[in-house]
Design a protein around this nucleic acid. Structure first.
Lengths: 334, 334
DNA sequence: TCCGGTATCGATAACGGTTGCGATACCGAT
DNA sequence: ATCGGTATCGCAACCGTTATCGATACCGGA
């Protein structure tokens, strides 16, 4: 809580100019090893922390990458983040996270806030934005990546998987195994566009073989095991003839499995189950649940690499459109 | 991707001085409603995003609160974060997250990095830091809160629960139910100090009634259902007479429960289980697992309130030491 | 001894806003 | 018409650091 310590103070203490002190502390060249050591020692012992606000303004560079995701509770985005961090670790860049809460208006204000710090890059989940957000993404003088989804019209770079296709493929797999009476349990959240696309892809896939959903339920609030269990119980009591349920998230399908365990239903004998994401929590359960891997870590890695490369080349590299193919794992519940 | 847009450009377009434009866009007084509207319209239509780096340097104020946590994957810290966000939402402050990866050296560098942005406050998980970190926390000219834990010597403000006590109380509850052959499964992570304290408290609690651990296992890597299941299987095959297992995390105890389900063991008849955290994933399982609530959301809220209050009063308020009492819920597995 | 070249350092001018205070315009009251 | 007061605006200095470029010191070779 002592007086504010400035570079000028350190310089004075070391008997050098501000410039030399600045260079020494940044590891810039043109400083002799001796004076550098001296300056570092003084700075360290006095607990000097350089003011990066001033530094960034002056150098016109901010070594931060803005990452905007809908939520941090949902198991899925932290893993995208860890992919990003892993790649950025080898560079001077650091990720900074913003949370939009599955709300496009909030997303707009979060992105505006982040861009006002002039980051070196921006990674945002999803392709759906307000018009004002799209304008900002276009105008931004840093690389911009829209991640996780490829079904839509990206403003600039894009990495992700097709959720439409993921839904469709799961439908095909389910039909291929002979199930015909099929239910769907998904989020009501109007702005979870990727869940919506999986739903659309799924019903498309069914329709292609002239099958329509036997039952359908939407829940509000975040996905949870608890909710999955309740919804499943509800749906099965309403539609006892159901042969298979597809959930918009693994968390929900785990809940479904829990209901079946409690109700003494055999899976997939009495009822087949499938989810989406291939979350970590699927490991270690009594049964290996069917799911589609969402490539979360890899999407994060690739998004970060796009930022890095675009920085090197000065953005003259052309736009990346990177569509990953998610792998279905059938597990033991189909 | 047009030319960089500066305040001066907006001012020119609106036919006013930079100052007036600045005031208008910040909602500062001394601007007529008419000119303000005009300036805002021009800024909006051109997609102008003010440069907060320059603004913050000039105004000597950054409306950010740095939050440093060990991990974002672990279910527990996102909830602390949501508590912080909820409280900060009513203020101009925004949280910025840094991840230390359960590594004090990394924590030091993350904190240094965050402080270099001169935030309005700093919230960090845990009381254990390197000496250099402690110096920085002392020196920082913003309020600092150490959160989640109260067993130790806080540098400034502090909110949390006693993990020593949480472990001890769980030991008492377990003993009170007559269990005597007790195992513990915990993380090997040397720098997960809170898990360590729960372990110490737990063995203390047992020792107080002359009981010693019948078996003990430490795993490395992050906690997961999978690991919990494997460790439990391992321990039970090694110590078949075990009556109860205490885990350092709910995620692990869920894995234990899964093993018991798969192995046809009755819980708590054959083996009793207890975890820690009261995580959301406990809801919806076949059995309600015993656990201790870690007050994550509330800790976040209180930490944020300390920052807010300390800002109002200019830090002249005296240090807060806020010890919450975690509630044990015995569930159906003890 | 003198010279060119390199290593090391410092003075100055930004960087893009905001604070503080002074200037101007406009109003009703005298 | 003059005046005091308020609403509105602009000028200049400054925030703390870094880029740029010029200055100085030092070295080996001619």
């Amino acid at each position: 809580m002592t007086k504010k310590l400035l570079l000028k103070d350190i310089a004075k203490l070391a008997g050098v100019s501000e410039m030399t002190a600045s260079r020494a502390l940044r590891g810039a060249p043109d400083v002799s090893a001796k004076t550098k050591a001296k300056i570092e020692e003084i700075a360290r012992s006095h607990g000097y922390v350089p003011n990066r606000i001033a530094g960034s303004l002056s150098s016109q560079s901010v070594n931060l990458v803005a990452v905007v995701v809908p939520s941090l509770n949902s198991f899925v985005f932290p893993e995208v983040l860890s992919g990003i961090s892993a790649v950025l670790k080898e560079s001077p860049l650091k990720p900074v996270v913003g949370v939009s809460g599955y709300d496009l208006e909030e997303e707009e204000s979060v992105i505006r806030e982040m861009l006002s710090w002039r980051p070196s890059g921006l990674i945002v989940a999803g392709l759906e934005h307000t018009e004002a957000t799209r304008r900002m993404l276009q105008q931004a003088d840093c690389p911009v990546v829209e991640a996780m989804d490829v079904d839509g019209d990206p403003v600039r770079h894009c990495v992700g998987i097709s959720h439409l296709q993921a839904g469709r493929e799961m439908a095909e797999q389910i039909l291929a195994r002979g199930y015909r009476s099929i239910g769907f349990i998904g989020t009501k959240m109007p702005q979870d566009f990727r869940a919506r696309k999986r739903f659309d892809g799924f019903t498309d896939g069914l329709a292609a073989q002239a099958v329509t959903l036997a039952d359908l339920e939407h829940y509000s609030g975040e996905s949870s095991i608890q909710t999955g269990r309740q919804m499943t119980a509800q749906m099965l009591s309403r539609s006892p003839d159901l042969e298979c349920i597809y959930y918009s998230s693994d968390v929900m399908s785990v809940g479904g499995l829990m209901h079946c365990l409690a109700a003494g239903l055999s899976v997939p004998g009495d009822i087949a189950l499938a989810g989406f994401n291939n979350l970590q929590i699927l490991q270690g359960l009594p049964l290996q649940l069917a799911t589609t891997d969402a490539c979360r870590h890899e999407i994060g890695e690739r998004a970060a690499r796009i930022i890095l490369k675009s920085r090197e080349t000065g953005g003259a590299e052309g736009l990346v459109f990177d569509r990953l193919t998610p792998a279905i794992s059938l597990g033991e519940t189909l």
